[in-house]
Simulated scan of single mutants.
Amino acid sequence: MPRTSEPTRERILSAAAKLFYAEGIRSVSVDAVAAKAGVTKRTLYYHFKSKDDLMAAYLEGRDQPNLALFQRWFAETTGGVADKVRGVFRNLAVSARHPKWKGCGFLRTSVELATMPGHPAMKAGVAHKKRVEDWLRATLEAERIGNAATLARQIILLMDGSFAVVLLHRDPSYMETAGDAAAALIRATAARRV
């Protein structure tokens, strides 16, 4: 593979991200990541002390971009907060229609590492999901909509549930239906406080 001006660590992470997302973290070897990045295994281990470390870095690298994407979709959707949350789900459904879409990398990793709750990649996944939930809670609090913590958790359950069902059925309309349910929950909660 030709060398690029991209720093070695970033090349390794980019290669790992592509392979882990496409094939799953357990089925991808360190040798495969090194080959895709155009580095030796020794160079990979210079930048990452273990495959576990690389897996955690892969998810940590997805954290802020994913959250920023949700925030952008929310901001770009017109209407009230219910419409904006539904907009996040609708954009997820558009993403799920792409032929290379494989679901949520954080949830897929959690399934692969279900028996290893202390694994660094599991911790990275927990931290990401918590950040998304915290963002939703803060957004709902700013709108003074009911019990924002409970409502944010309900929306996260709808979101993560829709990721699972869309992967199972290969039908992104489940995500749109989950978005409709999230919007209905927000509207019902807002109506109760009036």
Rank of each mutant, 00 (worst) to 15 (best):
E112R: 11
D180G: 01
L54P: 04
P65K: 01
A35P: 07
S29H: 11
K18Y: 08
A15H: 14
V94Q: 10
S162G: 07
G125N: 08
N66P: 00
T109K: 03
T139N: 10
K129I: 07
A34G: 09
S162D: 01
K100N: 07
T77W: 07
D31P: 07
R9V: 12
F70L: 05
F70N: 03
S5Y: 06
P65L: 08
S162N: 00
N147L: 05
S173Q: 10
R11S: 13
F74N: 08
H47Q: 05
S50R: 07
E76L: 07
G179V: 00
F89T: 06
A191W: 06
G105Y: 09
W135L: 13
R144G: 04
V88H: 08
R144E: 07
D160I: 00
L136I: 03
E23H: 13
R9E: 06
A124D: 10
G118N: 09
A22Q: 15
R193D: 01
D83K: 01
F106T: 04
R131M: 09
R26T: 11
S27F: 08
V39C: 09
M1V: 14
K130Y: 08
W135T: 08
R144M: 06
R153C: 10
R86D: 03
S5M: 11
Q64A: 14
G79E: 02
V126F: 13
N91F: 03
V165N: 00
T8P: 06
A184S: 06
R137S: 10
V94H: 10
G80K: 02
V194D: 06
R90Y: 04
R26L: 14
Q71S: 01
A182F: 03
L140I: 03
L168F: 15
W135R: 10
S162K: 02
A37T: 11
L136K: 02
N91V: 01
A35Q: 15
G38L: 12
R137D: 11
E10R: 10
L113A: 03
V166R: 00
V88N: 00
L69S: 10
G118L: 04
V28I: 15
P7D: 00
K18C: 02
K84D: 04
Y21T: 13
V81I: 13
K36D: 15
A68F: 12
R11V: 13
A35Y: 12
A32V: 07
A35L: 15
L167H: 06
L107T: 11
M55N: 02
A114T: 05
H169F: 14
I25R: 13
T4H: 14
T189G: 01
A82E: 02
G24A: 10
T115M: 02
F106N: 01
V85K: 06
D31L: 15
V126G: 03
N66V: 10
A188F: 07
A32P: 09
A16M: 09
T77Y: 11
A57R: 08
L13C: 11
A124C: 12
M55K: 09
V132S: 04
